[in-house]
Design a protein around this nucleic acid. Structure first.
Lengths: 225, 225
DNA sequence: TGAAATGTTAATGCCAGGTTAACGTTGGCA
DNA sequence: TGCCAACGTTAACCTGGCATTAACATTTCA
């Protein structure tokens, strides 16, 4: 579970955001002051700090600076009012990952949070190894044996799915439900096309085999050494 | 200028790569041993370390671990032989940003390097502010006033160009040469379409104005406070 | 005032990617 | 052993998205 530190002096806004973020499966530490935010940061080591710039007492920028000194790679996201443009630039210079201007929709906040977490490597691995191949799902990139392939979106999604379940038998209908959202004859034939393509890409890699289990589905076998 | 530390015990390969990377405008520190690599790292604080795993004496993984302890957010890229699969996994667990299997084309190395540098924020800023709007060129994303727009590639390229030269007058033919590679009547009309679109996106932002200088070109004016 | 320059909106054409077709191969079962 | 369903492979087809181009409008300047 990802832990967020939210420092926001507006009680109502703080509560609404906390509630919303908890509904998105985050653990949220809420603080109304910079001083208490700093204490929570020290005690709990959150994955991401969301700091309102306009705080009573220790302001958000000062708190951010303090956090960055203590933990230079700590992800920060600032909340800022429309009148705080210089504050924003200062925040970015300090190494903040992102900022949002009030007012904003909570969904936007979640989007930003997930972007930052992905970039800081706190969500699933961004790079997957397949024998001597490297696969970066977000970049649709498969590289190995001196070649770099730009996969199509569907190819990348299927390869990612197979890799996430390597050495497990995946039923045809399971893959179809997961990647295509439904199971029909023609989508199954479409999947066959993509399976064939992935086999072609992976052909040079002898320690990986995409096997068919007839009447059942597929299994991506990777040899363990 | 970006500084790279290259630790590679194969003299010939090291020289070839150094030369190639210098041609790509990198400054390259070359070392044949882990021990000397460590010393160079300490003295010169390179932007990216490229470490061969198979080194005499202190091996690449040990060196990488040492570097990560000293500088947790230091970008690392490992060079690995085909027989080093467990090494690769260890490197990734350690927090390496990427790896390449030998043999590889030098262009591939440059691609990987630029990817890592972009991700670590060591190239041009990944996030640009336009008044209360935030623009992330690589993600074709413009967000502000509660809305998030997915720009088309051309829109994003033009906006980025305008922002990179804000408050400077840009001649029509200059923009066309820069983004379209040539200047003709119809491409000019195409640019007019994109200018119009960008104006539409930015309309809510009063402190930014995309002005026409008739017979000359455009200037993106941003008010300074 | 007229023409050129530019603005705006929509139509057009092209391309990439997923789906579907067509033919081939394989495996399992009677 | 032969047949048929399941799947493999390659290419054709269709659609959506995007840049370009068209068409009409507006603005500016001599």
């Amino acid at each position: 579970m990802i832990t967020l530190l939210l420092v926001e002096d507006d009680k109502d806004l703080g509560k609404v955001l906390k509630q919303y973020l908890e509904m998105q499966d985050f653990r949220v530490l809420l603080s109304e002051s910079g001083e208490k935010g700093w204490a929570l940061f020290r005690e709990q080591s959150p994955d991401l700090c969301i700091l309102d710039i306009m705080l009573p007492g220790m302001d958000g920028l000062t708190l951010g600076k303090k956090i960055k000194q203590a933990a230079p790679d700590q992800p920060l996201l600032f909340l800022t009012a429309r009148t705080s443009k210089e504050d924003v630039l200062q925040g970015l210079k300090m190494g903040a990952d992102d900022y949002i201007c009030k007012p904003f929709e909570p969904e936007e906040l979640v989007l930003r949070i997930n972007n930052i977490l992905r970039r800081s490597g706190k969500t699933e691995p961004e790079l997957m190894a397949i024998g001597q191949f490297r696969f970066v799902p977000d970049q649709l990139e498969l590289a190995g044996y001196g070649n770099t392939y730009r996969l199509t979106l569907k190819e990348a999604q299927l390869l990612k799915y197979l890799l996430s379940h390597q050495n497990q038998v995946l039923k045809r209908e399971e893959i179809l439900a997961g990647l295509w959202g439904e199971n029909d004859y023609f989508l199954g034939r479409s999947m066959d096309v993509f399976i064939s393509r992935i086999r072609k890409y992976l052909k040079p890699e002898k320690e990986v085999k995409l096997e068919t289990i007839r009447g059942v589905g597929y299994v991506l076998r990777t040899m363990k050494r």
